[in-house]
Amino acid sequence: MTNYIIRRLLIAIPTLLVISFVIFAVLGLAPGDPMSQFGRNPNVPEEVRENIRRSLGLDRPWYERYFLWLNNVLTQGDLGFSFNSRVPVTDLIAQRLPQTLWTVGIAYLVALSIAVPIGVISAVKQYSWFDRIATTMAFVGFSIPSFAIGLLVILIFAVNLRWFPLIYDTTIQVVDLESFTKQLRQIIMPVMVVAIQQSADVTRYLRSSMLDNLPLDYVRTARSKGLRESAVVIRHALRNSLIPVIALMSLGVPAIFTGAIITETLFRVNGIGELLIRSTQLSDTPVVMAITFIYAVLVVLFNLVADVAYATLDPRIRYS
């Protein structure tokens, strides 16, 4: 098992290198210049512009800058300085990454706790009214763009019902019960948006996986030795059905972060997605590069976790 994990890690490294190179190449080959807004100002003399470009390291070709960047990342964990705020990128990201991970993490737990029971009941009572409603809802959830869910959620819960605040307050420090409930109230809507879409996906996967497993011999054996139906379904069928679901879930990881970017922009949550959108508009290359790379790392990391979980759960998978 340890061997398998090590081998998977070794495969992940070249993947990340290639992805970082591609992102850097896109940024480097792009005709856009961080100085372009500045450059349109006729009052800035040519020499000053050149000096600024040199101080930002922009006078060198992009591939040279890539190896410089890679070297700094690998040796010192240094992602450079933001062009816009002159703050180390690592500081900016350290401030914002927790919010993103919290939103995504809570949303995922919520999604699983909604999707697993629905998927199981749907499959056990196939073609019942519950199954029909659940499958239709899953179809709806998976066809609706996340910004539309977001707008609908805002309209219902913030504008009409006034249950939750419209705009995320980034200054709340959780110290006591009152600030905790405040934080809880404002995180519900962003979490809902990511969770609705994820639970739709997981419900569909789990239902079809359960339907594949329920007619199998081992389920009949479990029933014929007199086990309770709940034990047959949960302890026998569900456990086996979850294995392919985990593999499919890893493919959905990029989609989760996409959803998170939309929610963060929509609710103005101060996560890395919101920073990415803002930095893209400001042509703040180091920040954009770093955040895109962090998304890549997260995607590869979660894929790895899913693969390892898959291999651990399914004894039929040989990882030698």
């Binding site: 993947t15 992102i23 990029p254 972060f257 959108i277 954009v288 895109t292 998304y295 997260l298």
Partner: peptide, 13 residues
Amino acid sequence: TFLSMPTLPLFLL
């Protein structure tokens, strides 16, 4: 590798 790409950030970029 393409499947591990963060697609939306790349689209934006």
